[in-house]
Write a protein that binds this DNA or RNA. Structure first.
Length: 418
DNA sequence: TCTGGGGTCCTAGGACCC
DNA sequence: TCTGGGGTCCTAGGACCC
């Protein structure tokens, strides 16, 4: 008998940025709210309240489009430095219910309830699945009461199923399938073995990992739903769909969820904040740049920022990447690998070399980005690739920023043109 | 005035070594 | 001189996620 039991939970916060803005400014409650760039600026919608969704406003569309679709909405600029604190408070609530909590993004957490059945079982619960659903409603209520935020939860045997279920648990779900399914109720648990029946009718795009490109390939083959993909006769399974079909099969039918793709992430989770793979900053300009001195100046600002972030986390980058997007959206990246560094002058030196390889077209620049990857711990004293003067200067700068913030002290700029 | 910013993961090809 | 294969590292680009 297999141990296939729905005990993986995906909990996410409903319209997270909008909900936090409403906590900070209660006059926004019940009004149509769009968090993102200001109208007229270059930028996109980061979060849209349920009031504007029926008008076609979704995260990702341009602000220009959003203003056209919902001219009466309140446009709120994002406060990115504020949201993280709320997510941490939510996490603290979750950790009271299971030690196995993974932060997947700023508004999304995975919880593992394997082994918790006896703890949560109550006399009046019909079965252990029902007990878990009850506990998740308690968790939502606790988050609402203590942090002030609405949340939804999905449960399944695997992470992709849990994620799809949490989407179906959200408010305003269009009723689909049997009426006895708990769509929109705040918590959806997909029973073991019911995956295909409950989720098969969903459009392909709802499966995590199927994005615009994969969707197009599948639609071109005449497929529309997840069931269509699973029902493909063996002879029709082409190479281009084999991988994604395998992902769906594993998510729906995996007999060994404990050894599946979803488990290692929990085990690897580091309570001290996890490992970081890369640090990057990029910026789209209000108008495209063509003056090389301006480009250099912007790059210096980005280098300062990423290096500061790296030093704060005590990591040093072996690989530096420059990203450049032209006005026509053509984008190139150039990278180089060498001795580990997080020193502004050294990283900027490499970025200048990369710029020569990247900026080859005689065209203006829409976006610049600087990334650090291949991160390692502090270099040994003998291996220091930069001179002591630069290093002590950085330490002094970082101390000032520790007290007064990043913008309190900046590097001298390329002399502005008269 | 269509198309942000922060990430992760995968692939494919070339260099280089054994 | 030719023929291989495996492994690792690096680079560039693409897909995807929120």
């Amino acid at each position: 008998m297999s141990e296939r039991t729905p005990r993986i939970c995906c909990l996410d916060l409903d319209t997270f940025f909008v909900s936090v803005e409403r906590l900070l400014d209660p006059s926004l409650v019940d009004r149509p709210v769009i968090v993102g760039a200001r109208p007229g600026q270059r930028g996109v919608v980061l979060a849209a309240s349920y009031e504007v969704r029926p008008m076609g406003v979704r995260s990702g569309i341009s602000i220009i489009e959003a203003t056209r679709l919902a001219p009466d909405a309140v446009f709120v600029p994002p406060r990115m430095n504020t949201y993280g604190g709320y997510a941490q408070r939510v996490r603290a609530v979750l950790e009271r219910y299971t030690p196995c909590v993974q932060t997947a993004s700023i508004d999304e957490f995975y919880l593992d309830f394997h082994g918790c059945d006896t703890m949560y079982r109550r006399a009046h619960d019909p079965d252990d699945d029902a007990a878990l659903v009850r506990v998740l409603h308690e968790i939502r209520a606790a988050i609402r009461a203590e942090v002030g935020l609405p949340a939804s939860a999905g449960v399944g045997c695997t992470r992709p199923v849990a994620k799809m279920a949490s989407g179906l648990a959200k408010p305003n779900q269009i009723a689909a399938g049997d009426s006895d399914r708990p769509w929109g109720s705040g918590v959806v648990l997909v029973p073991a073995g019911a995956e295909r029946r409950w989720l098969g009718e969903l459009p392909l795009r709802r499966f995590p990992g199927i994005g615009p490109a994969a969707e197009k390939r599948l639609v071109d083959l005449g497929l529309a739903t997840i069931e269509d993909l699973l029902a493909l006769p063996p002879g029709r399974i082409l190479n281009q769909v084999r991988a994604v079909r395998g992902n769906v099969e594993r998510a729906f039918e995996s007999e060994t969820p404990d050894l599946g793709r979803d488990r290692p992430a929990f085990q690897e989770y580091d309570p001290l904040g996890g490992t970081i793979g890369s640090i990057s900053n990029e910026s789209t300009f209000s108008s495209d740049l063509s003056d090389p001195r301006q480009v250099e100046q912007r790059l210096l600002g980005l280098v300062e920022r990423v290096c500061w972030r790296a030093r704060k986390r005590c990591v040093f980058a072996r690989t530096v990447t420059l990203k450049l997007r032209y006005g026509d959206f053509h984008t190139v990246e150039r990278s180089c690998t060498g001795a580990a560094s997080a020193e502004d002058t050294e990283v900027m030196r490499r970025v200048r070399l990369l710029l020569r390889r990247a900026w080859t077209r005689r065209a203006s620049v829409r976006l610049l980005g600087v990334g650090l990857s291949n991160l390692v711990g502090p270099p040994r004293q003998l291996e220091l690739p930069y001179d002591e003067c630069q290093r002590s200067a950085s330490i002094a700068v970082d101390q000032v920023r520790e007290r007064f913030g990043f913008a309190a002290i900046r590097r001298g700029r390329v002399e502005p043109r008269r």
